[in-house]
């Protein structure tokens, strides 16, 4: 595949030398998700109800807002890495470029909205 020559690398046929870093970060964020998402689910089912008051009151506390924001960052990071691999395996040519671009927008778009919502409740509370 030309992994050994300079020409092969220029043509994009060889190792980009970032594979193991990608793999490792996937595992690190996975471990983070085990802790953060399980904490989130436990906290949700422990709430007295899922009413607006109960949920926004829960997010308002710094001890909940910060781990929740960290969970969003960690989840987005994890699915950004994971879906990249899925796209690279199944989508080819120009569609791959498009799909990887959409993945970027989806990652930062959803992450941005989620983080803003958490911070808004954390700092300002919510109108009744």
């Amino acid at each position: 595949m030309g992994s050994g020559t300079g020409l092969g690398r220029v043509r994009g046929l060889g190792s980009a030398r970032s594979g193991s870093h990608h793999w490792w970060l996937q595992r690190v964020t996975a471990m983070g998700n085990v802790v953060l998402v399980l904490w989130f689910l436990f906290a949700l089912v422990r709430l007295p109800s899922l009413s607006h008051d109960a949920v926004s009151g829960w997010i308002h506390s710094p001890l909940n807002a910060v781990p929740l924001a960290l969970m969003i960052i960690n989840v987005c990071w994890h699915f950004r890495l994971g879906l990249q691999v899925v796209i690279e395996d199944y989508v080819h040519g120009g569609m791959r470029v498009l799909a990887l671009g959409l993945l970027h927008f989806w990652t930062f778009g959803t992450g941005g909205f989620a983080l803003y919502a958490i911070l808004k409740i954390a700092f300002a509370g919510t109108p009744a």
């Binding site: 607006h52 949920v55 926004s56 997010i59 959803t110 909205f113 989620a114 803003y116 919502a117 958490i118 808004k120 409740i121 919510t126 109108p127 009744a128």
Partner: peptide, 11 residues
């Protein structure tokens, strides 16, 4: 995201 943004928007 829908759940969080809805909670931040209001009741």
């Amino acid at each position: 995201v829908w759940w969080l943004v809805a909670a931040a928007t209001g009741k």
